[in-house]
Design a protein around this nucleic acid. Structure first.
Lengths: 343, 343
DNA sequence: TTGTAAGCGTTATCAC
DNA sequence: GTGATAACGCTTACAA
């Protein structure tokens, strides 16, 4: 890591390093000629100041941390894209870390960010840290960070902090209602991970829509606590083989949706003739194959961009009360929600 | 960015900061009791040293840069995942930046990495920098970086530098040969971006396979220079409507494959009965939908992990000759390559 | 308008 | 074993 430093430049230009610093930062008085001379020397040596030294000296880094559960998931890589675009544009540096949805790794990621003295953090927590103890722990850790934080996608209750969230409840409500409006009466739900708050919110949206529309909740139609594709597959397969199976499903997440689709395929059912549904988020490749699957659509890249903007804004107005942006997912009906006349 | 520093700890523990430093780094002599005392104070204050100061002092940062064209693409987010896993495990910090396949942004990314004084760089270039001038420019910039670099996926000719590449030629050759072995004689190619070397290598693999197997190259069957889905769509649509159309295609990349599939769908052709193919890389969602599309499969996450390992290894052995890892894509035949008897 | 010098939070080199 | 002290490369008063 040996390279020319400000001192070298100063010496060669025959000025003091303060002057070079002024030139670099374009502030403070410095005469036209001196500036030109210094610039020439800098160019000649391809001089690039050290962010390390600069941050240390200014007591303020230009690095921003991003913690996401996984990079290899279209939702999170969409967030990353949005964040990255904004930060690039604004001249910040992006430090990224994944938690694998694991609490310990999440803590380690937080510590790594503190170690790097990030100016701020954009954070998709591995879980919601709901118990009193977990919450305290998390509050303390976020406090130790020493900079602002924007919580993204997965809320942490009671945390007085900027956040960018989805309105999971409304989304689920709208999706379920779309099925009702299409004429369905027997509607099931595949709720996904109800350990996560977003999972529970979606389940509640479904329930509310059912009840508000004069239908009744039917326990066996509610597949909850399925965390992955496999579990969803098995449970959907079982439910669909019963005589009084639902005619439609609201499917609260991607993984479950894939399990569902596999089950439907194995049972040789037709969508939507035999079974209808509305999902949450586009499936990877759904647009590629132009499949007529209805879903709740979130502008994922936008979500990430918003979070980054919010964080940057917070740098300028540290005292402004915490902001809470809740984005309502857009319902995209493409046909899979339809109720077909009995054949 | 105000937090307790090594001085505060030293004062409170009643020792010198050198001692605290020794405790932090676990090297140098320090008595059991002193160490315990210091550790207690550090814990009490949640003390975390500053990577900034540490790097500056050691003249060596633990940040590693990653430059990729886009984050929102399964191939690159797979690389990112692999890189990230290895770096996390080895205690490095990951700084990421995207180029959008744009040369200027690529340069800016490189500069950002230098600014941050990354210890090393993992780099998927925006293009191959093939002209003499571009090459010189790039060499110089990589040299200025002051640390080792691993080139990933897209080679830069003549650059004496570690790299992790795919054997595009062999892959294309194998894919084309699979079509030949399946009984096809009229085989086309959709070569994608022949501006990029990987595009040309794939085209060459196709050509060699055709010739080596006693077939002849037919110009109209070779769709080259298509950069995206739209162009591929239009050209495939045109070609497939000709009377002497190919019975099969080797499709050199994802975007082209999507264009191809759309054209095939719009012409109501059946795969593989009417038209067969083998693609390069899995399509996003291909596995989800369990589509029987044959392709060349690269262990993407592995590729990223390999690059990271190679970089880290280079830190320890700076003098070792440049390493060049060329991974041969694995051919996955799932049915779309078949030649069906004439109906 | 410019230079000097005192930090910023570490590590590393010495003496003790 | 331990503690001053001088780097590291930069910014920022403060003088000049």
């Amino acid at each position: 890591m040996k390279s020319v430093n400000i001192q070298d430049i100063a010496r060669e230009a025959g000025v003091g390093k303060a002057t070079v610093s002024r030139v670099i930062n374009g502030k403070g008085y410095v005469s036209r000629e001196t500036a030109a001379k210094v610039k020439a020397v800098m160019e000649r040596h391809h001089y690039q100041p050290s962010a390390l030294a600069r941050s240390l000296s200014k007591r303020e880094s230009d690095a921003i941390g991003l913690i996401i559960p996984e990079a290899n998931n279209p939702f999170f890589s969409g967030l990353l894209t949005g964040v990255s675009e904004v930060l690039d544009k604004c001249g910040y540096t992006l430090i990224i870390r994944t938690s694998g949805n694991d609490r310990e790794r999440d803590y380690r990621a937080l510590e790594a960010m503190r170690y790097q003295r990030v100016r701020g953090l954009i954070y998709v927590p591995a879980c919601n840290y709901e118990s009193e103890q977990d919450f305290e722990e998390m509050s303390s850790r976020l406090g130790d960070l020493g900079g602002p934080c924007v919580i993204l996608d997965r809320p942490i209750n009671k945390l007085d902090c900027d956040c960018v969230l989805s309105d999971n409840f409304s989304g689920a409500y709208a999706a379920t209602e779309a099925l009702i409006h299409a004429g369905h009466r027997a509607i099931g739900v595949i709720a996904g991970n109800t350990q996560l708050m977003i999972g529970r919110e979606r389940l509640e949206g479904y329930r509310k829509a059912i009840l508000q529309n004069g239908l009744t909740l039917h326990k066996p139609y509610q597949i909850t606590g399925t965390f992955g594709q496999k579990e969803a597959y098995a449970q959907v397969l079982a439910l669909l083989q019963k005589p009084d199976r639902p005619t439609a499903f609201f499917i609260a997440n991607n993984h479950s949706e894939i399990g569902f689709l596999n089950a439907v395929r194995d049972l040789r059912l037709k969508i939507p003739a035999d079974i209808a549904f509305v999902g949450f988020d586009e499936l990877p490749g759904q647009l590629v194959f132009e499949l007529p699957y209805s879903c709740l659509n979130r502008e994922v890249v936008q979500l990430g961009a918003k979070a980054a903007q919010m964080l940057i804004r917070r740098f300028d107005e540290p005292a402004r009360p915490a902001e809470r942006l809740v984005v309502v997912p857009r319902l995209c009906l493409r046909g899979s929600e339809k109720r077909m006349p009995k054949r």
